[in-house]
């Protein structure tokens, strides 16, 4: 028998090549799938601005101010010497609560979650308080609200000096 082992593969080599082949195939397939998955997340999306300038602290009377609610989804709440920017997204399932001035509470129409003026939840199915956004003063004395930075009560973040303005 003139079997040339240099040119053809022996059994062991064949299987190791096969393994390498399958590993590469699997890796390539999962790579392509991962790319398809990544494709579903756009790099840029055209949603409302995450930062806005909200006048001066003296513009706001004590209590809840709704002027930025529809445009930026923010309530400005002035209470106990603090001015805060409160998110208007219900922490239950993302509906928009209504501010009920007579009862001094935010009430979500979808499932009846209720929040105090401070944003703390007290009734309904919601698991946690409303979120607060970063507020700061610009050099020209105007308030800047930054919605990219979120402060949560249950993590103890409401003591963070960036989460409110002393007024």
């Amino acid at each position: 028998m003139s079997f040339d082992s240099k040119q053809s593969l022996n059994r062991r080599e064949f299987f190791s090549y096969l393994t390498v082949g399958w590993v590469m195939f699997t890796a390539a397939t999962s790579g392509i799938l991962a790319l398809c998955f990544r494709f579903t997340y756009p790099n840029v999306n055209f949603e409302p601005e995450m930062e806005f300038v909200a006048g001066t602290p003296s513009d706001y009377p004590a209590g809840v101010d709704e002027r930025w609610k529809n445009s930026y989804g923010v309530w400005m709440v002035k209470q106990e010497g603090k001015l805060i920017a409160l998110s208007n997204i219900c922490t239950h399932l993302g509906c928009i609560p209504n501010w009920l001035p007579a009862e001094l509470k935010f009430k979500c129409p979808c499932h009846g979650s209720g929040y105090y003026m401070s944003g703390i939840n007290f009734e309904g199915p919601t698991p946690r308080p409303l979120e607060r956004f970063k507020v700061g003063l610009q050099p020209d004395g105007k308030i800047k609200v930054d919605k990219t930075k979120v402060y949560r009560w249950e993590k103890g973040e409401w003591d963070n000096p960036e989460s409110f303005l002393e007024v």
Partner: peptide
Amino acid sequence: NPTWAPNPA
């Protein structure tokens, strides 16, 4: 209207 939720939703 994304700024106003009907009641009940």
